[in-house]
Design a protein around this nucleic acid. Sequence first.
DNA 1: AATAAATGAAGCAAATACTTATCATCGACG
DNA 2: CGTCGATGATAAGTATTTGCTTCATTTATT
Lengths: 232, 232
Amino acid sequence: MKQILIIDDDEKLGKLLVQYLERYDMKVHVALTPSKGFELIKKIKPDLLILDVMLPEKDGFEICREIRAKSSIYGQLPILMLTAHAEVTDRIVGLELGADDYLPKPFEPRELVARIHNILRRSSDDNSVREIKPINGLEVDVSRREVKLDGDVLDLTTMEYELLILFMQFPNKTFTRDELMNRLRGIDAELFSRAVDTLVSRLRHKLKDTSKTPRFIKTVWGRGYTFVGEQI
Amino acid sequence: MKQILIIDDDEKLGKLLVQYLERYDMKVHVALTPSKGFELIKKIKPDLLILDVMLPEKDGFEICREIRAKSSIYGQLPILMLTAHAEVTDRIVGLELGADDYLPKPFEPRELVARIHNILRRSSDDNSVREIKPINGLEVDVSRREVKLDGDVLDLTTMEYELLILFMQFPNKTFTRDELMNRLRGIDAELFSRAVDTLVSRLRHKLKDTSKTPRFIKTVWGRGYTFVGEQI
DNA sequence: AATAAATGAAGCAAATACTTATCATCGACG
DNA sequence: CGTCGATGATAAGTATTTGCTTCATTTATT
C-alpha cells in the first residue's frame, strides 16, 4: 500500500482524499501545516507528497525547494503540487523547484488518481527493476513480464504472476498465508479465506509442480509455504 | 540515455531542463552561445538539438539553416526550436528551415517532454534502418511504410502502423496500456479510455487476427498486450 | 488406529477486465 | 462549408480471473 502525505490546510479536502484514495490502495495522511508536514515526512516516509501552494507559515513552493535542497535527507521524494489556478508561470516555477507534476484546483478525483499513478510509476520503475535470478529452470523477465519454465513461456494470471515473483525474490523464506495475502492484496485481506491456497494450487498446476514432491512450492505444514531455492 | 543539447543563453532555463529531463532518461547539455554549441555538437553528438530563436552572435534560424545545409557533417540531427512568442510566421520559417518541431515560450515542461519524445521517436524510426524482422508471415518495410500479411499489402492508418512497428520491435514484450499510450501519443496520454483497446481491435481486424486464438497480438489479462514472436 | 486439524483441488458464482459495434469529433481536403 | 477518413468515447456484450464452498486427502496427535 502506497503511503501518501498531503500538506494542505483545507481539512475538508484532506478527509475527502483519505476516503477516496483508500479505494486505490493508498493510505493518505494529512498535515494541516508545513511544520506538521515535515514531521510526518520523517515519520511515515511517504511514497508521494501532495503539496498545496497556498499554505500558512510558508507556501508550497518554498517547501518544495527545501525538500529538494535537502535531498540527502528526503531523497527524491516525488511531489505533486496543487495550485489555485492553472497559471503557466506557476507551473514553470514549480517544476523548476523540482515538483514532478501539477494539478490546478479544482480537480477531478480521477484526474488526481491518474497523475498519482503516473508519478508513482515513473519513480518506482527506476527502483523496482528488481532482477529475479533464475531458479531451477524457472526464469522471470520482469521488464517483459515473461515467465519461462524449462524454456517454455508460461501464461500466468496477474495474481499468479505476483505470487511467483514474490516467492522468487525470497527463495527459501517461509511465508504465512497472512503475509502472502497482505503482500498481494493489501492490508484489508480477509484472514479466514483460503484464497491463498487456491492461488498456490493454481500456480503449482501451471508450474507442473506437485504438493507431494515439490520442485518449487513446498507446503510448510501449520505455517505456510516456501519457494525452494538452490538446494541439494 | 538520450543526449540532448540546448543552445540557449537563458542559463536558468538550461538548469531547469537538465534537472527535469534527467527524470526521463535524458542527459542534457547546455551551450550558452552558438559557437559553444557547434563545438558541443561535434563533441557529444546529441540525439536532439533544442534551439532558442533569440541568441547572441546569430539567431536560431541561422543555426538551423547552417546545420541543415551541412547535413554531410551533422546528418539529420533532429531540431526543436524554442520561440519567444507563438508567432505563426516564426513557426513556418522555422519548419521550412528544417526544424522538426517548435515550441513557444513559455511552455509546460510536460509539453516539452512530449515533443521531445515525438521527435526522437520519429527520427529513430526513420534513421535506424533497423529493419523489422518478418514474423509469422508479417513483413514491414519501414522505408516504404509498407506492411504485408502473407504477401498481401495491408492498408493501415497512422496509429495502427505505429502500434504495429512498436510491437514488432519488441516481440514477446508485454506492454501495458499506459506504455502504449505514452509511446504512441506522448506523455500526457489520457488514461481513462479504451482508446488502446479500440486501436488494438482495429489492428487485429486488419491482421485477420482474433483475440481468442491470437496469431499476433495476445491479450495479457490484467496487464496489457503482447505481440507474439517466434515460438517453438 | 482413531481423531482432529490442515491442506489440495474441483466447481461455481461474482467480480473484474477485455472486445467491439456504434456514435461523436476533429482535422484534412476539395 | 460539406464530405471523408481517422480516431476517441461509450456502452452492451463476452470472457477470464478470482474467491469461496465443499469434500477428499494428508498430517499431526493421542
